[in-house]
C-alpha cells in the first residue's frame, strides 16, 4: 500500500510496523497518526511511536505528492469519487479526501487544496466468518438474509467479504454490489481480494442500479452489499426479497435498537432474517450478538 504515498511518508511508514496498521491519517502540518489494534499513535520521522510533539508533521508537498500518486497523475479520472469524498485504490484501500470544496449550483463540483487524507487499509481475513457460517448458512442448504451492524472500523466489510467467499464456495451464485470497490477491491476488472469462485462483482454500481442489473441479468441466489442507509436502499432490498434473493448487507450503528430508530430501517429491516452486531472489544470483528429478526428478538 505504501507505494501510494509520497516518498518521505513511505519511508517513515515502512520503518514502522506496517502489518499492524489499519488506518493512516495525514493532515497538513499536524502529527502523523496511525491506528493499530490498540488505538491511535504518532510516528516520528524514523517511524517510531513517539509522543505527539515529536511526531513527523506532513507538509503540503507531502500531501500534494501523495494525491498525485494516488490519482496516477490524473485527478480528472477520479473526479466522481473525489466529489463523494473518497477514492478506492488497488488493494481495496479507501482514501478519504478533505479539502476546500468548489461548488457549482450548491453542489460540490470538485475539491482543491487538499488538507488531509484518511487512509483505511483493507485486509482480507480468510476465515473470519467461520463462527457465523452455522447461523447464516445453516446446514449449508440455505442462506439467511443478514444485516451486519457495527460502528466504523469494526470489520463489517472484511466479514462480508469472507461470507461472500465461503457462501460462494458452498455452491451459491453470489453477486457483490461493490459501490465503493471495498469488498472485492476490483482493479481494471479483476477482484484483488478473494470473494469466491461463483461470485460476480458489480463494481462501482450504486445499489439500486446494481440490484436491477443483478436481478435482470445475473440470477443471483445471494446479493452482498456494503453500508446500506440511503432512503432508496429499502426499495432496492425489497425488490431482492420479492425476487427470492437473499441479502447480506452492513450498516453503521452500535445496536439493532439504534438501527431500528432510523427512517430507512422501516423498509429495509423486514428483508433481513438475522442481525449480527460487531465491535472492537477484543479486536476488530468481535461478534457481540447474533439476533434472529424473524421472532423479533
Amino acid at each position: 500500500m505504501f507505494q501510494f504515498l509520497a516518498p518521505h511518508l513511505r519511508e517513515i511508514l515502512e520503518r514502522s510496523s506496517p502489518s499492524d496498521w489499519e488506518e493512516v491519517r495525514l493532515r497538513v502540518n499536524q502529527p502523523l497518526v496511525v491506528k493499530g489494534r490498540t488505538g491511535y499513535c504518532f510516528l516520528s520521522p524514523l517511524g517510531r511511536v513517539v509522543p505527539k510533539d515529536e511526531a513527523y508533521r506532513p507538509t503540503p508537498e507531502d500531501l500534494a505528492r501523495t494525491v498525485q500518486i494516488l490519482t496516477n497523475s490524473s485527478w480528472y479520472a477520479w473526479e466522481d469519487e473525489i466529489r463523494r469524498g473518497y477514492l478506492t485504490i488497488p488493494g481495496g484501500h479507501r482514501v478519504g479526501i478533505c479539502g476546500r470544496a468548489v461548488l457549482d449550483g450548491g453542489k460540490v463540483k470538485t475539491v482543491k487544496s487538499v488538507s488531509s487524507l484518511s487512509i483505511r487499509l483493507a485486509r482480507a481475513v480468510p476465515g473470519c466468518a467461520d463462527s457465523l457460517m452455522p447461523h447464516i448458512c445453516p446446514k449449508g442448504r440455505e442462506v439467511l438474509s443478514t444485516l451486519v451492524i457495527s460502528p466504523p472500523g469494526c470489520g463489517k466489510t472484511t466479514l462480508l467479504r469472507d461470507l461472500a467467499r465461503q457462501i460462494s464456495q458452498r455452491g451459491f451464485q453470489v453477486v457483490v454490489i461493490d459501490e465503493r470497490s471495498e469488498i472485492a477491491a476490483c482493479y481494471q476488472g479483476s477482484a484483488q481480494l478473494d470473494v469466491g469462485p461463483q461470485t460476480d462483482v458489480l463494481d462501482g454500481y450504486p445499489k439500486a442500479e446494481g440490484v436491477a442489473v443483478a436481478v435482470r441479468a445475473l440470477s443471483p441466489q445471494v446479493v452482498v452489499t456494503d453500508e446500506i442507509g440511503h432512503p432508496d436502499d429499502g426499495a432496492a432490498l425489497a425488490e431482492l426479497a420479492r425476487s427470492g434473493v437473499k441479502v447480506l448487507a452492513s450498516c453503521h450503528g452500535d445496536s439493532l435498537a439504534q438501527v431500528k430508530a432510523r427512517s430507512w430501517a422501516r423498509d429495509s429491516l423486514p428483508v433481513f432474517q438475522l442481525a449480527v452486531v460487531l465491535s472492537r472489544r477484543s479486536g476488530p470483528g468481535t461478534v457481540e450478538q447474533v439476533l434472529s429478526l424473524r421472532s423479533g428478538t
Binding site: Q68, T71, S73, W75, Y76, K109, T110
Partner: peptide, 10 residues
C-alpha cells in the same frame, strides 16, 4: 496543467 484538475479544465 495536465492531470491536476477536473475534466472541464483539462
Amino acid at each position: 496543467a495536465l492531470g491536476v484538475s477536473d475534466v472541464e479544465d483539462q
